[in-house]
Design a protein around this nucleic acid. Structure first.
Lengths: 129, 129
DNA sequence: CAGGATCCTGTTGGATACTG
DNA sequence: CAGTATCCAACAGGATCCTG
């Protein structure tokens, strides 16, 4: 979810565009990998996500998860144990965004190969297909 | 096409992901509106695009068009007349990205209405459906 | 008409340290 | 373990002025 101030003069023209609404939800550096990782449907712990997302900081991961939760894409389940455990899953809304993303992935796969032959693909995204 | 320096440590994990490849192409503030505007298939002049894209500067429009051309999405046809005339059209690759974008738009339309009822939609994007 | 050059600012994302 | 807080660098995008 973009924090940018809505410019009223462009609001109706661009920012309420349903495509941009969708891209805003999955935009940013880490949200797409997170969604891909949760695409299996199984709940995944915070620490597991952090470990598999090479290079992500606690700061960025927590923020991305919070924004995805605010968008209704992921569900956060907190267990009051010691040590604490928090698991994330895709909501129904989150699952429903996968087919459109797969369309994007298919188009990307087709046309990446035209440009740079032999490109390797993100393992998590491949798992969506 | 983003100008950001590619971080080699995340390259294979994220940046060669076909979804991100696709989103990078249509990302940014003006590329989606430009693509929507060209979706009819008719060639459109630079000045016409500029006039219809309220708020865009020459700087941003020229840059967006150049990047879309480099991505193979739009074709630039220059006529050596006085005054100069340049017309833009979607390439075959550009046309082929419309169906995936329509999927995104459909998802966005469905779920925007859950969040904010009565939201108005971008006229150019609606024209794609 | 169709851009380019230069300078500037707000946002995004990262580094590091700390906590319930 | 699962985050926060604070500070900072990089980049996208805009304003203004200039040109073939």
């Amino acid at each position: 979810m973009s924090k940018k101030v809505i410019d009223e003069t462009h609001n109706e023209e661009n920012l309420l565009c349903p495509i941009r609404y969708t891209i805003d939800i999955v935009g940013g550096k880490w949200k797409l990998p997170i969604i891909c990782m949760l695409a299996s449907g199984l709940p995944i712990r915070y620490s597991t996500i952090k470990r598999k997302l090479t290079g992500v900081t606690n700061m960025m991961l927590a923020q991305s998860l919070k924004e995805l939760e605010a968008s209704g894409i992921v569900h956060r389940e907190q267990y009051n144990e010691v040590p604490p455990r928090v698991e994330y899953t895709l909501t129904e809304k989150g699952k429903s965004i996968l087919p459109p993303l797969v369309k994007l992935a298919e188009w990307g796969t087709d046309h990446m190969q035209e440009d740079k032959t032999g490109a390797t693909f993100c393992a998590t995204c491949k798992s969506m297909k």
